[in-house]
């Protein structure tokens, strides 16, 4: 066996855990009678031990926080969503106000009546609000007590309240899709009368 090539190659195979039983025996036999290879083998193993002994370095203090500060700012829609999760009541109230003071298209005098926050480019069929193909709704879309089908595009968040059905497979929503049911049920129940009052006052003016 040639020391410089064959024996050394076997040593490296050994270090990679890839020696067959036969090769292992060949190497062992050779090391028994060849001092030079023995030394070489010992040096290799010692080298690895030395490399492995280098202290594990640790990332500097505050590393993770620095990374977080350097990230591009989060999509607004998501912070909204997280905020929503941690403040369900406030969010429900916020949605309530959007419905009240936004461009609300609705008949509020019936409990289970469909309402939608926008009128433009939207078709209402039976109990379903449809964003037609080829149409784009600018801004957030809130639908209450109805189903929603998006064939076109919504440039904003979509919130479906008390609706069972949200179909957006063909369409596109640039923001978030959320469905609000239980929370709104509760707040809706509590505020129903107030809403009626507010609207009747408006009508009187």
């Amino acid at each position: 066996m040639k020391c410089s090539t064959e024996a050394v190659a076997l040593m490296h195979k050994y270090l990679d855990d890839e020696l067959t039983k036969d090769e292992e025996k060949t190497l062992r036999d050779h090391l028994h009678k060849c001092e030079r290879c023995q030394k070489h083998f010992h040096e290799l193993k010692r080298t690895i031990a030395m490399v492995q002994s280098t202290n594990q370095v640790q990332a500097p203090q505050g590393f993770a926080q620095n990374v977080m500060q350097n990230l591009p700012s989060e999509k607004k829609s998501y912070s909204y969503k997280r905020w929503f999760k941690s403040h369900p009541m406030l969010t429900a109230a916020a949605i309530f106000f959007i419905l009240m003071f936004g461009s609300v298209f609705s008949m509020w005098n019936q409990d289970q009546h469909l309402s939608v926050s926008k009128q433009k480019d939207i078709i209402i069929q039976d109990n379903t609000v449809i964003v037609p193909e080829g149409k784009t709704v600018e801004g957030d879309l809130v639908v209450k007590n109805g189903n929603l089908r998006i064939d076109g595009k919504v440039n904003g968040d979509v919130v479906l309240i008390n609706g069972d059905n949200l179909k957006a497979s063909a369409g596109e929503v640039t923001g978030d899709l959320s469905q609000v049911n239980q929370v709104f049920d509760w707040i809706w129940y509590k505020m129903k009368t107030t809403v009626k009052d507010v609207f009747s006052m408006k009508e009187e003016k």
Partner: peptide
């Protein structure tokens, strides 16, 4: 999904 805060634990 857009939850930036979850990334901090990945970094850590």
């Amino acid at each position: 999904k857009g939850d930036q805060s979850a990334f901090e634990e990945v970094v850590t």
